[in-house]
Design a protein around this nucleic acid. Structure first.
Length: 569
RNA sequence: UGGGGCGUCGUCAAGCGGUAAGACACAGGAUUUUGGUUCCUGCAUUCGGAGGUUCGAAUCCUCCCGCCCCAGCCA
């Protein structure tokens, strides 16, 4: 064996780290962190970042990745989110050990660092109003002007800052600002705000604080305090790097991590911005953060996605700096690949067509053997009841079969999976509508199990369910949330106008009796239909609910599409 | 029109001066008791464009074009 497990594909970040290791830049340490703000649920885009940060730590000897909540804005944050985020990271399969941190753990240190900056004449208390600050900031093409409060003495600044902390002032009365350069072409460097007053209780520190650090101040210092070596973030923070470095350069810290930016994930037919996801939840367009149509980790989990499939997906999409939109087909491919190996096969009928086997004894029932997974014999066999009255899928019968339609048609013989060869001898229609309501068939008793001693072949194998033995469950058929590949392509059109009306279709589902005790969360392949999992929220023992994770690849559907196109020409 | 980034197949993405990996998608074909899986085969004479350097350029230089980000007391 020359190859064991293939190493994760390289990317520019792994290269930087490899180079740093070579030059012993951080004494050979590799320390990353995943720093979510607890103001929403994690989505597949976060998974990319989690896999990157935790993945890099796992790949390197003594590599570690911290989980740190960037909880510097109590107005938006909530304990509900810190809990769901931890659950999601764990579910994905990553472990932060004892390194669960919060920026709020560092509030006192951060305050002291700010005091240091004031003492060094590098920060001042500014009493301009928010509007005035904006005015003074200038524009992208014009330099800003210095605040009239910029020249306050160190003593006055110290006093004011202390009183800000003590709660003597109202929200917005003062802020602490860094003294950098109001003419900088980088607007972020024009005396950025470091602390602001918010008389709001914090989900962890309660009413201990009424001033809270801004992201730019808290993030770099939190990284430094934790001894992070590589601070990996998304592209929009590229311009923040200058400030990140400024703060760490001006303060007496002994760890100055390197910020590295990569492109965030975009996925076709969905949206991945917290703001938009919140909008879908609050607007009632989905049932919640864990609606199986949501690209959130909790939604994907409920939909039936496995952590492995998501990690494989994240590995396949790569990491780079260019904006991109990954085809959702790649995500779907990743679940199918995983579920194909592990999901037991079962049978169920979504749109039933009644079939009566005329030469099968009225009261006879046979328990036929069915293989649980052709990909894995160790998963064993099960019994499936067969009787005179069955249901097959409406799609599996055509009175006038078109070219290349191999399934059942008048006079045609097909195989019922693990059962018998049957031949359609009569089509029963509703007199009023002309609709096919029942098929009369005959079976060949010599084909029990699905093969014929005379070696004759059939072109199709159909799934089926015994009418008297099937269980009626509910199927929830999910499809893309949006009809447009890139729902937020046009700036002047609300992304919600592209919400798909067909993202959820609910149908009764006739399933084989072996499913009677199916556990919530368990995953199955309904043969010839797709992968499903038992819903963890709405399913109960006497009312099973199956969520369709993803369909099987459907070559016949593609042939049909091609034929339709031909006809249109 | 300030600054910071980015442009390689339909979609991601390797490539780091020696003559365009891989994956998904797509199209054929083989095997198949799932039109599933698996397995073959095909799929960028060309790297946003134009010049230049070089024996040799996607890789180096120059100019141009296009896209993204920044003017929260959000992160």
């Amino acid at each position: 064996m020359t190859k064991t497990e293939s190493a994760p594909p390289t990317n520019f970040i792994r290269q930087i780290i490899a180079d740093d290791l070579k030059t012993n830049k951080h004494d050979g340490r590799v320390r990353t962190r995943f720093p979510p703000e607890p103001n929403g649920y994690l989505h597949i885009g976060h998974a990319k970042s989690i896999c990157l940060n935790f993945g890099i730590a796992e790949e390197n000897r003594d590599g570690l990745c911290n989980l740190r909540f960037d909880d510097t804005n109590p107005i938006k944050e909530d304990i509900e989110y810190v809990e769901s985020i931890q659950a999601d990271v764990k579910w994905l399969g990553f472990d932060w050990g004892d390194r669960l941190f919060y920026a709020s753990d560092y509030f006192e240190q951060l305050y002291q660092y700010a005091v240091q900056l004031i003492k060094d004449g590098k920060a001042f208390v500014c009493s301009l109003s928010p509007d005035e600050i904006r005015e003074y900031r200038g524009t992208l093409t014009e330099p800003g002007r210095e605040s009239p409060y910029r020249t306050r003495s160190v003593e006055e600044n110290l006093d004011l800052f202390e009183r800000m902390r003590a709660g003597e002032f109202d929200d917005g009365a003062h802020v602490l600002r860094a003294k950098i350069d109001m003419t900088s072409p980088n607007v972020l460097m024009r005396d950025p705000t470091l602390f602001r007053i918010k008389k709001v209780p914090h989900h962890r520190t309660g009413d201990q604080w009424c001033i809270y650090p801004m992201y730019d101040f808290a993030h770099c210092l939190s990284d430094s305090i934790e001894g992070i070596t590589h601070s990996i973030c998304t592209l929009e923070f590229e311009i923040n790097r200058q400030l990140y470095d400024w703060i760490l350069d001006e303060l007496p810290v002994d760890c100055h991590p390197q910020q590295i930016e990569f492109a965030r994930l975009n996925l076709s037919y969905t949206v991945l911005s917290k703001r938009k996801l919140v909008e879908l939840v609050n607007g009632g367009h989905v049932s919640g953060w864990n609606d199986p149509r949501m690209p959130t980790l909790s939604g994907l989990r409920r939909r039936g996605y496995t952590p492995e499939s998501i990690r494989n997906f994240c590995e396949r999409i790569g990491v780079a700096k260019r904006d991109s939109v990954v085809d959702i087909a790649l995500l779907e491919y990743s679940v199918r690949e995983d579920l194909n190996k592990r999901a037991p096969r079962v049978m169920g009928v979504l749109r039933p067509l009644r079939v009566v086997i005329e030469n099968y004894p009225e009261d006879q029932v046979e328990a036929l053997d069915a293989l649980n997974n052709p990909e894995d014999d160790s998963m064993g066999w099960r019994k499936v009841p067969f009787s005179r009255v069955l249901y097959i899928e409406q799609d599996d019968f055509r009175e006038d079969p078109p070219k290349k339609f191999f399934r059942l048609a008048p006079g045609r013989e097909v195989r019922l999976r693990y059962a018998y060869y049957v031949t359609c001898v009569k089509v029963v229609k509703d007199e009023a509508t002309g609709q096919v309501v029942e098929l009369r068939c005959t079976y060949d008793p010599n084909t029990r199990g699905g093969s014929s001693p005379d070696g004759r072949k059939v072109k199709a194998t159909l799934h089926w369910v015994s009418a008297a033995h099937s269980i009626t469950a509910e199927a929830r058929l999910y499809d893309h949330l949006f009809v447009k590949e890139n729902p937020d392509e046009e700036k002047d059109v609300d992304f919600k106008t592209y919400l798909s009306p067909n993202s959820l279709e609910t149908l009764p589902f006739l399933v084989e009796p072996s499913l009677a005790n199916a556990e919530p969360g368990s995953k199955y392949q309904f043969e010839r239909i797709g992968y499903f999992c038992v819903d963890t929220v709405d399913s109960s023992e006497d009312a099973l609910v199956f969520n369709r994770t993803v369909t099987l690849r459907d070559t016949w559907a593609r042939i049909q599409k091609a034929q339709q196109k031909k006809h249109q020409k």
